[in-house]
């Protein structure tokens, strides 16, 4: 779905979007209740491998996708490393206080965020939005008015981005594209937001009217152009995920990288 980067359709693309979402989302909760960094490191390795092998994207692009992750890894782990509580002091300078405990806790947090990011990327890169919402209507009984609103909004995305650029140019020409100070910056944001939002509101209204004029109602039962079903690939995904989770968990106990078992 992203910016027309070429890819091969792999079995991950063939999975049911709703099923994929329902497999990925609970991982958030599971990960939040894991406090052993060894487990998270193993899972990160496992799911990164799954992603790299079966996302269908070229390695060059995959590595490019991972660049921002490095930033969030550092950004999420740093405050905890520098300012977290702990007993075994490694380094102290003014307010900065690095301890063994805070260090591992920080790294653990970094891996957590990394895992969430990998799940997000894996989902986004292997799911077509149109099929996601068709699937949500068919498998999760999402009301059509919500599904089609999302699809209409996604269709407007490139138009809105283009409009943003035009507004930017127009303000530049009138020398109104810069502002000083916090208040000025907020005023500037308004200056961009007003034309974009008002245009979007009008367009949304018109599209809604046009949709109803084309016979859209919530009352009648509708047929679907795309029939999205569950299939064997969903079972594959389920099994693969179970294996990675179980093996990663077991190996963390059997062959730990670090001695700490609980970072709290």
């Amino acid at each position: 779905m992203r910016w027309n980067i070429e890819y091969k359709e792999t079995w991950l693309h063939q999975t049911n979007p709703t099923a994929k979402l329902l497999l990925f989302l609970p991982m958030f909760v599971v990960i939040v209740f894991v406090h052993n960094p060894n487990v998270l490191i193993n899972w990160t390795i496992g799911f990164t491998a799954l992603f790299m092998l079966f996302s269908g994207y070229r390695m060059k692009h995959v590595l490019l996708f991972f660049v921002p992750f490095l930033f969030i890894f550092i950004s999420t782990s740093s405050s905890m490393i520098l300012f977290g509580k702990g007993e075994t002091t490694w380094f102290r300078l003014g307010l900065i206080h690095i301890t063994e405990e805070s260090f591992y806790r920080g790294v653990h947090l970094g891996f957590r965020t990394l895992l969430f990011a990998i799940f997000g990327l894996m989902f986004a890169l292997t799911t077509k939005p149109v099929l996601l919402f068709y699937s949500l209507m068919q498998q999760a009984k999402l009301k059509p008015k919500y599904a089609y609103s999302f699809l209409a909004a996604i269709r407007l995305l490139p138009i809105m981005l283009e409009e943003f650029q035009t507004v930017h140019q127009a303000l530049k020409v009138r020398r109104a594209a810069k502002a000083k100070g916090f208040r000025g910056k907020l005023e500037l944001m308004k200056r961009y937001a007003i034309p974009l939002l008002s245009q979007s509101i009008r367009r949304a209204q018109r599209i809604a009217v046009a949709m109803e004029a084309k016979g859209f109602t919530s009352e009648r039962t509708r047929t679907f152009y795309y029939e999205v079903t569950l299939g064997k690939y969903d079972v594959y995904l389920f099994v693969v995920m179970c294996v990675i989770v179980a093996v990663g968990y077991y190996m963390a106990g059997a062959l730990p990288y670090v001695a700490i078992k609980d970072v709290r």
Partner: peptide, 29 residues
């Protein structure tokens, strides 16, 4: 439908802002 569609479209505009906000957020960190 009008309410839902308007809400979602406006929200998606902010969705882009949210996305742009991410790099800004860890840039000022």
């Amino acid at each position: 439908l009008t309410d839902v569609l308007t809400t979602v479209v406006v929200a998606i505009v902010f969705g882009i802002v949210y996305k742009v906000w991410g790099p800004l957020y860890y840039a000022v960190k």
